[in-house]
Design a protein around this nucleic acid. Structure first.
Lengths: 223, 223
DNA sequence: GTTAGCATGTAAGGAGTTACATGATTTT
DNA sequence: AAAATCATGTAACTCCTTACATGCTAAC
C-alpha cells in the first residue's frame, strides 16, 4: 500500500507525459534529468508505478520493441510461443492515461507552501516547461522568500554564537550561507527574466507553453 | 528498537562532548550549529538519547537548576511531592560517559567511503575541530574526488542529451553543476590551507565574502 | 489570566534504501 | 562461454517526521 511519494510520483507522471517508457529507462531519466537533486532506486520506483496504475493514472503495455521486430519475422517464429509479447522479456511500457494527464496538470498548478521546500522545488523546476507562467512566478518567489527567511535566521544565530564557535564550524556556516545567498541571486535572475518575458505570449492558461525559449541570457558551459 | 542513526547519533555525542545538555537545548544546537544541512525533531532526538543511554555512552542526570533552588524552599514545599527533582519539571541533563567519549573518538577517526557522502560530510566537517589532521585530509580529499566523479557523469550525460532537453531542465542542470564545481573549489582551498598547516593563512583572491579566517593550525587530538 | 516558550515524551506512519531473487540480451 | 547490462520485482529494514499528549514557567 501507500507509496504515495509526492516527489517520485510527480516526476514519474511528468516524464511519462512526454513519452511512454518502461521502468528501467524511467529510472535513468529520473537520475540524470533531475539528477543532482534526487536519486531513486527500483525498490521505490516499481511499487510506485504499480500504485499509479491502480489509481488509473497509468496503463501497462507489453512491448517487444515493435519497430525492430518487423524485419526479424523468421527469427521471431522460432520463439513464437511467447505470444504477443514476443522477443525480449515482457518489457512493460507505462503510458499516461487521460486521468493521469489531468491529475498531473492539477499538480502542476499547485502553489502551496510545500512546493518551494527543498525536496519539491527541484522537481517542480524541472517541469517548468509545462507550467504556466503565473505558477512559475509564485514558485520562484515563494522559494526565494523561503531562502531569505532562512538566511535571516542564520545571520541572527551566527551573531548570537559567533564567539563560541570554532573555526571549522564557523567556516561551515559561512559556506552554507554563501550557498544560500547564491541560490537567492540565481532565483532573482530567473524572476527578472520571467518578468521581461512578458512581451509576446500573454496567454497564461495552463496550456503547455513551448513558446518560452530562454530563461535568461545564461549561456555558461565552460571548462 | 534500533535508532542507530549514524548522523544524529554522531552529532549528539559530539555536542555532548563539549558540555552536558538537556534534550531541548541539544536540539537547538543541532539545528543551528549544524543547521543548513539537517534538522531534527524531538521525535527522533529523544528516542536516540534513550538508546545512547542504554548502550552506556550517556548518563541521565536530573537537574532542577540547583543554584536557583536554594532560596525557594517555602514554595517548593507546596509541591514537595515531586521529591528530589523539585522545582522545574525534571530537566534531564545528558552527560557523556568515558565509554561514550571513547566511542566518539573511534567514530571521529573513521575515514570510510561513507564519510564523504552528502549525509555524513556536513556533520563530519562540523567536528573537524576535534579531528586529527590526517583524517581531515582524507575526508576532504575523499569528498572532492567523489564530487569530481559526479561532475564527470553529469558532463557526460549532458553531452549525450543536450538537444533533447528544454531550457528549464538545462538551466537546472547548469546550476546544479555550477554548485558542485563551487564546492570542489571550496574543498581545494581547504585542502591547500590544511597542507600549509603551520604556515598561517593565505587567502586566494575571492571577492565574494568578507574576511576568510581560514581554519589554520587549530589544535587537535593526535594519536 | 492567557499566550508564548520551555521541556519531555510516544505511536503511527511516510518515504525511501538495501539486499535479494530472477531472467533476457548484448558484448567481448 | 563469460561478463556486462538490460529488465523486473519483493521483503525487510532505516531513519526520520507528524501529530498527539502532558505539564511547567515567564511575561504581557
Amino acid at each position: 500500500m501507500s507509496r504515495r511519494s509526492g516527489v517520485l510520483e510527480f516526476a514519474v507522471l511528468g516524464l511519462l507525459r512526454e513519452s511512454p517508457m518502461h521502468g528501467y529507462e524511467l529510472r535513468k531519466r529520473l537520475n540524470t534529468s533531475l539528477g543532482v537533486f534526487r536519486a531513486f532506486s527500483y525498490g521505490s520506483l516499481y511499487p510506485c508505478l504499480k500504485a499509479l496504475v491502480q489509481r488509473g493514472w497509468l496503463v501497462e503495455e507489453p512491448s517487444g520493441q515493435p519497430e525492430e521486430q518487423q524485419p526479424g519475422r523468421a527469427q521471431a517464429a522460432s520463439r513464437a510461443q511467447a505470444g504477443s509479447l514476443a522477443g525480449r522479456r515482457a518489457k512493460i511500457v507505462y503510458r499516461l492515461t487521460a486521468e493521469g494527464k489531468e491529475h498531473f496538470e492539477d499538480l502542476l498548478s499547485q502553489t502551496g507552501p510545500d512546493t518551494w521546500e527543498d525536496e519539491h522545488f527541484g522537481v517542480r523546476f524541472a517541469f517548468f516547461g509545462q507550467t504556466s507562467r503565473d505558477v512559475r512566478m509564485r514558485v520562484l518567489e515563494g522559494r526565494r522568500s523561503r531562502l531569505e527567511e532562512r538566511l535571516a535566521k542564520m545571520r541572527a544565530s551566527l551573531a548570537r554564537t559567533r564567539e563560541r564557535l570554532d573555526d571549522y564550524t564557523l567556516e561551515l556556516q559561512r559556506h552554507g550561507m554563501e550557498s544560500v545567498e547564491r541560490e537567492v541571486r540565481w532565483l532573482s535572475e530567473l524572476i527578472e527574466s520571467e518578468r521581461n518575458g512578458t512581451e509576446r505570449a500573454e496567454r497564461q492558461g495552463r496550456e503547455t507553453g513551448p513558446d518560452r525559449p530562454a530563461p535568461g541570457p545564461s549561456d555558461n558551459t565552460d571548462t
